[in-house]
């Protein structure tokens, strides 16, 4: 973590004002979900999760599930992205009773385009219990850092939270405030 911080990882994360790359990814239910289509309805929140195995991700998913009515009331769509495959996105969604889309960012492609992907250093691989090769369907040892982007309707990053410390997450209240300030600007 300290190493990621020291290496200027944060400079690589897609900054405020940048256009978030358009994407289409499989949802937990096996549908293809397009960012453009969601943007047509209003602002979009794109949030990266490491997986259901991560206790901090579970906490944040619970918090977002609770905050969803407020997010929707502010006119925004929430998309949760995870590199997990093999039905684990659905498991995640069902476990939290989430009504928002959980998408499989297969092979971390969108995470890479957003600049939030890092490789787990060899030293730490033994300490992490999950079998990533099986969960991700590749043996690359890549994970996203917890990051949340609030996109205005034109797909531009209006607000973002990214943190190399995986225990620190965006506060739902901050996300909602960011969405609301967008509404105020329109």
């Amino acid at each position: 973590m300290a190493e990621l911080g020291k290496n200027g990882f944060m400079n690589q994360v897609l900054p405020q004002g940048a256009v978030f790359p358009d994407f289409m990814l499989p949802s937990a239910e096996g549908r293809l979900v397009s960012l453009t289509r969601k943007l047509a309805r209003g602002p979009v929140i794109v949030s990266f999760f490491r997986g259901e195995w991560c206790p901090f991700c579970r906490l944040m998913l619970n918090a977002l599930t609770e905050a969803l009515p407020e997010i929707e009331a502010a006119g925004a769509t929430l998309l949760a992205l995870t590199p997990e495959t093999g039905g684990l996105a659905l498991t995640m969604k069902e476990y939290h009773g989430a009504r928002f889309e959980v998408l499989s960012d297969v092979d971390c492609g969108v995470g890479l385009a957003a600049g939030v992907v890092f490789r787990i250093p060899k030293l730490y691989r033994g300490m992490l219990r999950p079998d990533f090769a099986e969960r991700h369907g590749n043996a690359g040892w890549f994970l996203p850092v917890p990051a949340t982007f609030v996109l205005s309707q034109d797909g531009v990053v209006a607000w973002r939270f990214a943190e190399v410390d995986f225990s620190r997450r965006a506060e739902p209240a901050e996300i909602i405030a960011a969405v609301r300030s967008l509404g105020a600007r329109v």
């Binding site: 790359p21 358009d22 994407f23 289409m24 990814l25 293809l32 397009s34 960012l35 453009t36 960012d105 297969v106 092979d107 971390c108 492609g109 969108v110 890479l112 385009a113 992907v117 490789r119 590749n138 043996a139 690359g140 040892w141 890549f142």
Partner: peptide, 24 residues
């Protein structure tokens, strides 16, 4: 050792974008 994984990730990034573009 990292080449195939980075290639796959790059392809995934391009594919997610290309699919969105192909649609339009």
């Amino acid at each position: 050792s990292v080449r195939p994984h980075l290639e796959a990730m790059l392809d995934a990034a391009d594919a997610a974008r290309d699919l969105a573009a192909a649609r339009s």
